[in-house]
Design a protein around this nucleic acid. Structure first.
Lengths: 214, 214, 214, 214
DNA sequence: GATGAATGAGGCTTCATTCAT
DNA sequence: AATGAATGAAGCCTCATTCAT
């Protein structure tokens, strides 16, 4: 065991560079959009040679993957503590929305960057980000915190228990995810968008929309 | 005025070519994503020289603008007749959602292409599609049918008349637009997505979410 | 039918450029060796932009293929008339060697370039030139003049008719081909190598080596 | 003199690493071709850092030189015992061919690697392998076993003694060397090529071709 | 003895655009 | 109305090599 390696097998300096590169890439992607960000621009932003970026990531796709992982982990880690407390489906739903919106608010740049990537990334063979992701999810379903990112289970549980009105979970999930993604879209155009306020309104909307009608 | 010019000052041939190019571009963008579509690919798809495309559009940006205009016009024209009949805010809202969703369903490729463009387009100076669009909207507010594309007025009217519960119109509009865009996002991944079913669920959600509570 | 197209569908100017590029590439490959020749160097040599080369050939591999075709055609066309006259196997064999050697002598640069390519080319998936060529030969056996490039048939015929001693045609062919390639190898190191003299000696060697012993 | 240095001034460890690196390089060159083999690939194959390879060899050219020396020495050492026994020129010639072919057969990979290097190597200033080698041969003519690698002396002696017909030794040598190199060429395309059979045929050919005619 | 980090040069290719015909 | 030819900028990536540790 080498002394200056952390648990991921990375040197301190390596980890630092990687973080620096990821940060630069995130900032640039959020600002310029995914397709406009080149390895050259990333390198220039941190004053290193292009090859340094490729030394640490080997491929543009690998860099993107690292960014995505970073964002997802950040999101999951931030959201997790805000979710576990709740017991009712309605409570979980509100908590989910608020937690999600809180992440967007606290990690604006990362969120916007992720949004840009999801919207514009294509794999070498032309597949969309979602499709590539869906595939890897099937191969290896997310565990623990990452599983919390999909609200489908909340709707399913609420319906099953009768706490929610009968509703098509998948459409509901899609609507909620879309509404939340919409917040990032606004954020992308205006970093000062009141995401939290928007989130509260979403809480109201989805509360009213799922509630059992008497 | 030359005899074979239509109202836009285009000859038949010119109009036909432009339509052909737009169609090819739409199909390619929907399939490959905006950043992956080059003028070369568009030209190749319709078996003409690259320069033909640029002869008819002068610039890639001009081509994109033409596509956007085409899509928006198609959408407005399709939606318009489905909207005017309604008198209540709730009625208008439902009609708006159904009309919007109907457009997506009937013009899948165009919708997906538009979605790709909105997500990935950047002007030469790096501004997002929305930003560029917002600007030109300010300079020249949309009239007639195009005005119908923004549901903000519906929420405003519903609140003002007391038909809707008091609600923040802008957030509501954003949530609705996002939810509708979400449909296109699903469509982009899967052209067989049940947009109409999803639309019905949105009708329910937004009905429940705007209704005056007794 | 456009007026300035030749039978291959190429414009005059296109044909001229292609020839110019091929010539430059041949000269550079002969001088520097295949791996050292880049599209940039070729372009520089004829004072055009790199992209011009790629405009006319699309790919480095396509350029190489064009060179190879050019060399082979040149060789076949040059050799053909020198071969048909002969009727005996021995006569054909001598003629083949002399014809081959004559080509090398008259088209030194092209021969050396071809030699360099055969020695160093690898397809994208790592296969050797011979292997790629063998494959395409199997798919579409060479006809007419190109068929003359392989002396195997001569040995086969000579053995079958009893004009040659019993001998393993394939090994014999390989030895002859190798000896002829050796001439190019010498040429590559020294453009003034006496290929014709060497050829005469080969004629002697293979005459003695195939002759029926009494 | 340090205790763990051998006669070349290398420690055991150093010698072992060098051998390991040379072996890896040989295998890779034989498989992928000289131009496709990079120091990175060599290092990766033996699971060390790129810099390790350069620590032991300082330069890619130095590594190649080491490989060449290794191959030549292997060849000379293998051939030597098979040659000394013969007294007649014809005997020596047959022995030379058989010995050479035996080396190719027993050290396929090394032979193919050498073949790839000879075919594709260029010094920094663009000179071919042969040319660089010829130069160093002139500066320091090979002694002992290495001298045996060139069959020119055999032809010279055979002619001088009248055992061979009058023949141009240099052309003859070139033809023989080329024919032998051809075996490696076949080997490069197909490691199962019957080199020994081919060698026997060469023995026959060159026997018939050098024999005094009555 | 080994290695991680960095680098700059150069490789092939794609792109939007211009211009003369 | 169409097109062939050319271009330079930019994109990603590979390479041999250097240097401090």
């Amino acid at each position: 065991m080498r002394s200056n390696n952390d648990s991921h097998g990375l040197t301190f300096i390596e980890a630092a560079r990687r973080a620096q590169i990821v940060d630069a890439a995130v900032a640039l992607i959020a600002e310029l959009g995914y397709p406009q960000v080149s390895i050259a621009k990333i390198a220039e932003r941190i004053n290193v040679a292009k090859s340094v970026v490729l030394y640490h990531f080997k491929t543009k796709d690998a860099l993107i993957a690292a960014i995505v992982e970073d964002v997802m982990t950040t999101a999951a880690v931030t959201m997790a503590p805000l979710l576990t407390a709740e017991s009712t489906a309605a409570g979980k739903l509100s908590a989910y929305i608020r937690a999600n919106v809180a992440v967007l608010h606290e990690h604006r740049l990362r969120s916007v960057a992720m949004f840009e990537i999801v919207g514009a990334y294509r794999s070498a063979d032309g597949r969309r980000f979602d499709q590539v992701a869906a595939e890897s999810v099937q191969a290896e379903p997310p565990e623990g915190e990452l599983a919390l990112l999909d609200p489908l289970a909340i709707f399913d549980a609420g319906v099953r228990s009768g706490e929610f009105r009968p509703l098509p979970s998948v459409f509901m999930r899609n609507a909620l995810r879309a509404a939340l993604d919409g917040a990032v879209s606004e954020l992308a155009s205006n970093l000062d968008y009141d995401v939290l306020g928007y989130g509260e309104e979403l809480v109201t909307i989805f509360d009213l929309a799922t509630r059992r009608t008497t």
